[in-house]
Amino acid sequence: MVPTALNAAASDVSGAASDTLVSIEGLSVDFDTGRGTVHALRDIDLEVPRGKVLGLVGESGCGKSTLAYSLIGLLAENARVAGGAIRMGDQDLTRLGPAAWRDLRGRRIAMIFQDPMTALNPVTTIGQQMLDIQYRDKTGRAAKRARAIEFLEQVQIPDAPAKLDVYPHQLSGGMRQRVCIAMALLTQPDLLIADEPTTALDATLEMQIVSLLRDLQRKFGCSVLFVSHHLGTVAELCDEVAVMYAGEVVEYGGARAIFHTPRHPYTQALFDCDPARIKEATRNLPTIPGTLPDLRQPPPGCAYRARCPHGWARCEREHPPLYAGAAEGQQIRCHLADPEEGAA
């Protein structure tokens, strides 16, 4: 697989000064369940660009949240990294012990979670929670409070000083997610992981939060890994997009390339199903027929072939590598993109 070798070589040479903040190399994650081992992530190669937003798109169960959690070391207890590496600076995150992970979390890596209604401690005030996460700073209580107020104002929470004494249940869902964003940014992370941060919110709030995230990302210049199944928000926010299917990256590229010239049949099908893109009135919303393959025994060829309208014998036999696409940096895991296939 040519791109993998290139990636590995690049990160070995350049190290911290490169445009890549985190380099995921051949990452595989397994879940041990009562009914067998689920290979949730298989041989993921992905780079989180420095100071940019990388979108992770795919249907439920495709492994996008698993990938996000493996970047902050918060995988479920029955999950384990079966292979590969996650390089950040000169560290391989997959080899970190609990203490080293703790040192990274809330300092270099922060995370915003899916459901703001349950993400905050219900019996502690917002202010106390924002003070607690500044435990590394040696400054006094007053300075920490001032910093908390500053970041609540950054996320446009009205009357920020008064909000410090409020409990989470006294705030609306949108406000709570703003508090979570303020807390994450307050730690000034290099990498901010946002795991479907708008899924639990209604549509108008969703756009507010997305544009807030975009503004703050530009202001603070951190890298963001934005996990979503909502294509509209990804288009709005992301510089680069990775489309995931059945635990693999099936297409990767700049947001513009992915949205304008999607090459992988799965990406195309995803766009066809996006209600925002439907132009003709229909009785039923379009769906992709079929279901995800059983990840306890991933199929030998292309993971998508059972649902793919273009599949042929080669897809059955041969697992497609990531082929380079027409646009710069675009990569497609589909034999249709094989230049030799086109030549033949």
């Binding site: 349950t118 401690n121 607690d132 996460i133 435990y135 590394r136 807390m183």
Partner: peptide
């Protein structure tokens, strides 16, 4: 619960998480 995972995501010590979360 999610708020415990969030506390962990901020690198709080297990001792503190157990006590106050």
């Amino acid at each position: 619960q999610p708020h415990v995972r969030m506390a962990r995501a901020f690198g709080l010590s297990e001792r503190r998480i157990t006590r106050s979360h």
